[in-house]
Amino acid sequence: MASYSANSREEGRAPLPMENRERDWWLMPLLTVVVLTLFGIYTTFRAFENNYYHYTNNGADYLSPFYSPLLPIAWYLHLPLFGLKMVSPAIYILIFPLAFRLTCYYYRKAYYRSFFWDPPACAVAEPRADARMKYTGERKFPFILQNLHRYAFYAAVVIVIILWKDTVDAFIWTNPDGTHHFGIGVGSIVFLVNIILLSLYTFSCHSWRHFIGGKHNCYSCSCGTRSSYGIWKKVSFLNHNHALWAWVSMLSVWFTDFYVMAVASGMFKDIRIL
């Protein structure tokens, strides 16, 4: 082994003050905790509520993304999940987007920082000194499962396809005679914006970026890799703002469900634009 004369004093780190950063470092983690917690509470409530998720008045067809696709009642009633019976179908559906977001490379950063304080912010000391040597990162269970993010992505793609269908449905209105016509309500717009944002989030995924081209070392070497280069470049462009898509798509899903709940429960009325 080559040696470097720099005197190795690996043990003796400087007795520096622990805390040094400006006072505002906790703003981001706090914001993350508040928003994610609120979203969690809302989602849990709505998932168990099992009501007001499908608005069909006046020929509309707004199906909340929390409850799409509509599962046959018999199906979910008799499928035990964690010993729970008689729960809402949303449980079976939400588990997939939840897994996608939970293993997402962006959300991981967000919750490792704000919930686990690993680290709370850059160059801010982690408070749990006793846990210092126990840290294993993503090498041990359960965090080693993060390596399977791609499977959550595959499921998320299926969900996105289903939600695109729901969005199309949100533009198709049923006449009293059973025929259909094209129309736009405020809800339709909400659905459209939501699915666009969800698609941006889903297809800016790091695993997808790897799958579609990141795994290649030589793009110019074959026809196939050359075309995957083009897609990879575009995905990379989207990926650059993955965190942004993660936040806005989460808010839009929440708002879409809220909108459906509101119009279905009569909190306010959906307005027809066309």
Binding site: M1, A2, S3, Y4, S5, A6
Partner: peptide, 12 residues
């Protein structure tokens, strides 16, 4: 050069 493992006297 590092792959040949010479001795590097840094900061001398």
């Amino acid at each position: 050069v590092v792959s040949y493992k010479p001795i590097v006297y840094m900061e001398h």
